[in-house]
């Protein structure tokens, strides 16, 4: 399949199945049948980013993120918007600065928030959010679908693509730290440098 995709051919597939069984309706909790229906219904999302790359140092700033999400009917717009904003910020951290490092004795080297670098409010880009509410059969209550992790899945990929376009080749490892971006840009990443 990877071979076909690498050749530029579009991969399309179809399938269906019986939804897994769930406990009898237990109101609105996540584990009830209604929550499970919202999870199982397919969600789609698409993120586009604008980044600024300091070519001399590899430092990347994300300036703008546009996030479109099909999570079905949005029941709580404030909650859903917050979820996407938070997910985008976590996605940027995943892309650029967040990574656990371990010592030889398997203890985490950066177990504190001073060294495990989350994005801060000062790093937050402009985030534009669009909810594309597609009616979906067998979705959750009122046609709602999940939105939990989806907002931090697409952001790192969009940032990686933006950087690949800027420096001509992809950075092969997350997080795409300034040093890794710089090494990729100067072609040192294939010479065995960590």
């Amino acid at each position: 399949m990877a071979g076909i995709a690498a050749g530029g051919e579009l991969l399309l597939g179809h399938g269906s199945g019986t939804p897994p069984s769930a406990p009898e309706a237990v109101g609105v909790t996540c584990v009830g049948d209604q929550g499970l229906a919202a999870w199982v219904a397919p969600q789609f999302s698409c993120h586009a980013v604008r980044v600024r790359l300091d070519r001399e140092t590899g430092v990347v700033r994300v300036l703008e993120v546009s996030a479109a999400h099909d999570s079905g009917t949005i029941i709580n717009p404030i909650g859903a918007t917050g979820q996407v904003q938070g997910g985008v910020l976590m996605g940027i951290g995943q892309a650029l600065t967040e990574g656990t490092r371990y010592r030889d004795d398997a203890r985490q080297q950066n177990a504190g928030l001073l060294e495990y670098k989350l994005q801060t409010a000062a790093d937050a880009p402009q985030i534009q959010i669009e909810f594309v509410e597609v009616p979906t059969a067998n979705a959750g209550p009122s046609g709602a679908k999940g939105i939990a992790e989806a907002p931090n899945v697409a952001t790192p990929a969009a940032i990686a693509n933006a950087l690949a376009k800027l420096i001509g080749r992809p950075v092969r490892q997350l997080p795409m730290t300034a040093e890794r971006v710089w090494e990729t840009a100067i072609g040192a990443d294939e010479g065995g440098v960590q």
């Binding site: 140092t57 430092v59 650029l96 600065t97 994005q119 801060t120 790093d123």
Partner: peptide
């Protein structure tokens, strides 16, 4: 040189 814009060393 800083990797993020606040709480940085």
């Amino acid at each position: 040189l800083e990797y993020r814009r606040a709480m940085e060393i």
